[in-house]
Nucleic acid binder design. Structure first.
Length: 217
DNA sequence: CAGATCTGGTCGGTTGTTGT
DNA sequence: ACAACAACCGACCAGATCTG
């Protein structure tokens, strides 16, 4: 099997969620037959699974998604070691120690993001920079502009998922980091959360209307 | 119940790549 | 140059459900 196409298929399923072979074919710019042949191979390897979903008319749609094994190809950075160390910090220094650890991490990342954003003022540009940076950190991030003019910052993978599950302080910290990185002229609200069982984390970003000189607020 | 509609599956051919 | 192979595609067939 073509490893590149196979990886593109896995990536598409990870990034875009469960899809039919037709959806995947359109996204990868190949035919549905080609997609099905690759999916059969991936099914044999246990990397994908499918569910037949009955619609209103016609043969049920076969919706493909990543299996547990397929998801495991997107690494959760040394999660076992990380959890051990977090447990150690908590045992030795208590919750206060954990919070200090999170704050220290947050400060280091904030400095990095501040440096990244310096001289960039347009919200969309800042979002793209942030998404690129987050992708480099393993979060498979992207930005989508929504019909209502807001933006959706999407993280398709959580590379610190094990830590985030063990201590939600990491998630609070990241939300605050995004708010700081994008600046005071926008609101950032988390809408989907992997730790809460969602497929991905999403953050709704809206530009705030500036108060005019006449005092309108 | 037959035909229409929508979707997935199979078969055989074409094209491009690689090794000899 | 040629053979072998992988990847892909078009044509056709089959399955599931709705509609008249």
């Amino acid at each position: 099997m073509n490893e590149r196409t196979k990886n593109r298929l896995l990536y598409a399923l990870k990034a875009r969620g469960p899809q039919t072979s037709a959806d995947l074919a359109a996204h990868l710019d190949v035919t549905t037959v080609a997609v099905r042949q690759h999916l059969d191979g991936l099914l044999d390897e246990g990397l994908v699974r499918f569910e037949d979903v009955r619609g209103t008319v016609g043969r049920p749609k076969r919706v493909w998604s990543l299996s547990e094994h397929g998801n495991s190809r997107f690494p959760d950075n040394h999660s076992g070691l990380l959890l051990d160390m977090l447990d150690g910090v908590r045992a030795l220094y208590g919750e206060d120690g954990m919070n200090q650890l999170i704050n220290r991490r947050e400060a280091a990342i904030r400095a990095q993001y501040d440096s990244l954003m310096s001289g960039v003022h347009q919200l969309e540009e800042r979002l793209k920079l942030l998404a690129d940076q987050r992708s480099k950190e393993g979060y498979m991030a992207e930005v989508e502009q929504q019909p209502d003019g807001s933006f959706l910052l999407i993280e398709n993978h959580c590379s610190i998922c094990a830590a985030a599950r063990a201590c939600q302080g990491f998630c609070r910290s990241e939300l605050q980091l995004f708010r700081d990185a994008l600046g005071p002229e926008c609101s950032v609200v988390r809408e989907e959360h992997i730790v809460s069982g969602a497929r991905r984390c999403t953050y709704r970003v809206r530009a705030l209307k500036r108060a005019s000189a006449s005092g309108e607020a």
